[in-house]
Design a protein around this nucleic acid. Structure first.
Length: 144
DNA sequence: GCCAACGTTGGC
DNA sequence: GCCAACGTTGGC
């Protein structure tokens, strides 16, 4: 899962202990969140950063449920086409699991295990996407 | 249903 | 700040 560290970093997650992952407004990303189970592990990626890269491992502490910001007119994530009767967007709640030694995007690209990794695919803009077990393990090993 | 215009993402 | 990629919107 990607986050812009200026907005919400891995350190912020450690600080607040748990955080609802608000603002996902892409159906594919939403559907991936819906597949997540409590206890699932998540690679926390810092996007739009200098440098971008992986900061740590998080876990799912609460499964998908409606993202309340979609109903809040004062939120930048407000969606007037969504209603509490028929919510369109979900969030999951994350907690910190394990901080990793920062792995920059350059280092990720150099890892043979990540050759096919969706995160690194050209033009990929999804903020939530699945990793294979091998990819996950390789990233954790690189940051441990 | 097509597709041009537009907005957003995210690396550089 | 630039720009490629690509999802969404809206006119037809």
């Amino acid at each position: 899962m990607k986050s812009e560290p200026d907005v919400f970093s891995y350190d912020d997650l450690v600080k607040v202990k748990r955080e609802g992952w608000d603002g996902v407004r892409n159906y594919q990303a939403r559907n991936f969140m819906r597949e997540m189970k409590k206890g699932d592990l998540v690679i926390f990626y810092h996007s739009n950063a200098t440098p971008p890269g992986v900061a740590g491992v998080a876990n799912i502490v609460k499964e998908a449920e409606p993202d309340p910001t979609q109903f809040d007119p004062s939120s930048k994530y407000f969606d007037p086409k969504s209603s509490p009767d028929d919510p369109r967007w979900d969030w999951v709640t994350l907690g910190p699991k394990k901080r990793l030694k920062f792995i920059s995007l350059d280092e990720l690209r150099a890892m043979p295990e990540l050759k096919e990794c969706r995160l690194l695919a050209r033009g990929n803009r999804l903020s939530v996407m699945p990793l294979t077990e091998g990819e996950f393990t390789a990233i954790v090993a690189a940051g441990s």
